[in-house]
Amino acid sequence: MTAFIQYTLQGLALGGFYALAALGLAVIFGVLGVVNFSHGACYMLGAVGAAVLLDATGLGFWAALPIVTVAMFVFGVLMERLLVRWLLRLDPLYNFLLTFGITLFLVDLVKRRYGVSSLAYELPAGLKGRVDIGSVSLSSYQIFVAAFSVVLCLAVWVLLTRTRIGMIVRAATEDAERSRALGINVGRWVTPVFGFGIALAGLAGVLRAPTGSVNADMGSFFIIILFAVVVIGGLGSILGAVVAGFLVGLVEAYGQGYAGSFSQVLIFVLMAVVILVRPSGLFGREEAAS
């Protein structure tokens, strides 16, 4: 039972990274129709950014959280304005290739500057210890990550469901063309939404920095898991991205706990089962599959 609780917490923390990043991927796909392959690289940049910030200025995790997130938002805005925008009218494959290219570029840039070995990063002040609840001892940082990402996902949910901007983003995510035909200037929301999505990936990276290894390649496996998350949740579904993110985190953690090295395989078994039972994903619309 003790182990189970620990794995659950671990899973929720892991799921937090996935959910935040997948949420960003989902809104970008929904509003722009772009499958952002560079999402993993942006997650990596978030983590590397936190490590570089610490090294260069001594500013730790608590400062990195807002600074890097805002910096990644700006990075996303530039990426959309300078590059992605020009290919939006073409086949979506072009932007997929563009963001794939951006990924290679960013990864190699980081390798060139900081090498391939992991950069040092510490647990943030105040969250180094463990919390004992009865006989269960839990990492306080994992508790923080799990709670923080759940709260953040809820906050984004409230933003999406309770505000006019959120309503427009949901409508554009469901059907951008129809929203245009109903008088909504979807183009106006394209840049901020892209920046927002990239910022969420960067934020997930910062959150990961204290417990994962921070290096140029950390995004390449992450993006694969992220695509599994999106397939499980249903392409273009915001709720699906969040739920599937936490689900995959839990499966990975239980897998690591009970099935050892088999855990990564379990994610893809889950994906295969979901595709068999519901081809459009847990929260995807049926038409999407046909």
Partner: peptide, 15 residues
């Protein structure tokens, strides 16, 4: 062209 992710009222007030 009714949005599934929007309520009836939101569908009305979106445009």
């Amino acid at each position: 062209g009714i949005y599934a992710t929007l309520t009836v009222a939101e569908n009305l007030t979106l445009p």
